[in-house]
Design a protein around this nucleic acid. Structure first.
Length: 486
DNA sequence: ATAGGGTTAG
């Protein structure tokens, strides 16, 4: 059985497994863990359920593997149930079962309190467990807590950071100086050419805008066919993210010319670069030469960026065809499609709404801020007011009305329909009002014939110390002119 | 056996 598993022939392995008359915990566990290792998480979890039904008791090894599967797939309920089982069999303080549940708390539950509880309860804490903590907290953006953990791990437990620690730390580096510090630590702890550390560093340098420093790392890495795919993807996305679209496209061509077979990551970035530089024809070339040949026709990431590329070119039918072809649509894919409608069709609320309704009716995905933001912007004609109000209600329900960009969009929607008071209420909901908030609400009064209110708000704004660099003269003059003529 | 790398909408 394990021979077949190692060859990747899980079908034969499973057949043998089924034929075994006396299965024990080791047989069950090795079959389950083979599935997890090959990325077949659903099959692994299905087999685990069978194991429980047939009254075989899982051990700490089985439990750590299935919790990991729940984490990767994002199964909340099953993960919580399995935790119940871990507690029942008295393994909650076990380092393996416990650490994987710790990771589950960070990644799936987003529950830091219970993560700390699990962590504090563990019998033994090794570098592995420290790394789960550091990576989880770093992902959450809690830099000071991450640094506290790092120091505690070194000073109290006397453990040295390893490559995975470095990768975890890089997740909470937002400026060049921070990346350089972690890079320094990596060199100190003996990082030579670990590919995960290398590509994380490259990616982090790219994210803080230092493509050059990232490319320097590239020179120090020893690449082979398996690893260079990662590194190419990093370097292409760095360029695409930093406004170097043309270079990103060239790099992608180089990559293909060298005979690399990219997975969906590099083409997604390359297509994003095409969208940024509005190069539809190259985008179509990439799509045809790579996507179809390499079988990414139904990939969600590739599909989403292609939709926005076709949207920019005004080709809504083509975009919809691509959208329909995506197998496992996530919220980003839906948003790309809704944005496409808003962009292409004049007075597009009806089309946008019909996609939105389909999203709510046929999936369990939660619409997010981007979904609602786009829908709101699509409400342009007076017949869309009712829809606009409904969307505003959803925005309030998600407590997003206080977010500056979103609040500004709400003000603008109401202003378009002359709903002066509602626009003003939306303005008040915004926690930190920026130039756009002020100018929108003032213009709202001014354009709807309430010059005195416009002027009054101008005064409040100035008393607040806000200066409108772009809008000030026209708005204030309009306000004054109207006021003087009264 | 439990931790680490690259992708999409606004």
């Amino acid at each position: 059985m394990s021979f077949y598993s190692e060859c990747g022939d899980l079908y034969s392995a499973h057949q043998l497994f089924d034929e075994m008359p006396h299965k024990n915990v080791v047989t069950w566990t090795s079959m389950i863990s083979s599935y997890v290792q090959h990325g077949s998480f659903q099959l692994a979890l299905g087999l685990f359920k069978k194991m429980i039904v047939s009254n075989e008791m899982p051990n700490h090894y089985t439990l750590s593997v299935v919790v990991r599967a729940c984490t990767v797939v994002g199964y909340v309920d099953l993960g919580v149930q399995i935790h119940g089982l871990i507690v029942c069999v008295g393994l909650e303080r076990d380092e393996f079962a416990g650490s994987s549940f710790l990771d589950f708390n960070f990644k799936v539950m987003g529950d830091l309190d219970s993560a700390f509880r699990v962590f504090d309860g563990l019998y033994r804490i090794d570098v592995f467990t420290w790394n789960v903590m550091i990576s989880g907290l770093a992902q959450d953006g809690d830099t000071s807590e991450v640094l506290r953990m790092l120091s505690e791990m070194q000073v109290v437990d006397g453990l040295n950071p390893n490559d995975s620690t470095i990768v975890g730390l890089l997740k909470c580096c937002y400026i060049l100086k921070e990346v350089e510090q972690v890079h320094g630590l990596a060199l100190k702890t003996g990082f030579k050419n670990d590919i995960a550390v290398g590509s994380s560093l490259m990616d982090s340098y790219g994210k803080v805008g230092s493509i050059d420093l990232g490319q320097k790392i590239l020179g120090s890495l020893e690449l082979n066919n398996n690893t260079s795919c990662f590194v190419w993807s990093s370097i292409i996305s760095s360029h695409a993210r930093n406004g170097c679209g043309k270079e990103a496209i060239t790099l992608f061509r180089d990559m293909c010319r060298q005979g690399m077979r990219p997975n969906q990551h590099a083409p997604s970035s390359a297509l994003k670069a095409c969208a940024d530089v509005r190069d539809l024809s190259t985008g179509v070339q990439v799509q045809q030469s790579q996507m179809i040949k390499n079988g990414f026709r139904s990939d969600c990431f590739v599909g989403s960026v292609l939709i926005s590329l076709y949207a920019d070119a005004g080709k809504i039918c083509k975009a919809e065809k691509l959208f329909r072809r995506i197998d496992d649509k996530d919220i980003v894919a839906w948003n790309a499609m809704i944005t496409c409608c808003a962009q292409v069709e004049e007075g597009s609320a009806a089309t946008c709404i019909s996609f939105f309704q389909e999203l709510c009716r046929t999936t369990t995905l939660e619409p997010n801020g981007a979904t609602l933001f786009t829908l709101l912007k699509s409400c342009q004609s007076i017949s869309d007011l009712v829809v606009g109000i409904q969307i505003h209600a959803m925005i309030s329900k998600l407590s997003l009305g206080c977010v500056t960009r979103m609040g500004n969009a709400v003000i603008n929607m109401y202003s378009r329909f002359g709903a002066v008071d509602d626009a003003y209420k939306a303005f008040n909901d915004i926690v930190s009002k920026d130039e756009v908030s002020w100018s929108s609400v003032i213009r709202n009064y001014q354009q709807n014939g309430f010059a005195l209110d416009a002027l009054r708000l101008c005064k409040v704004m100035m008393a607040d110390g806000m200066v409108l660099t772009n809008f000030s003269p026209s708005i204030m003059c309009c306000g004054l002119r109207r006021t003087c003529s009264y």
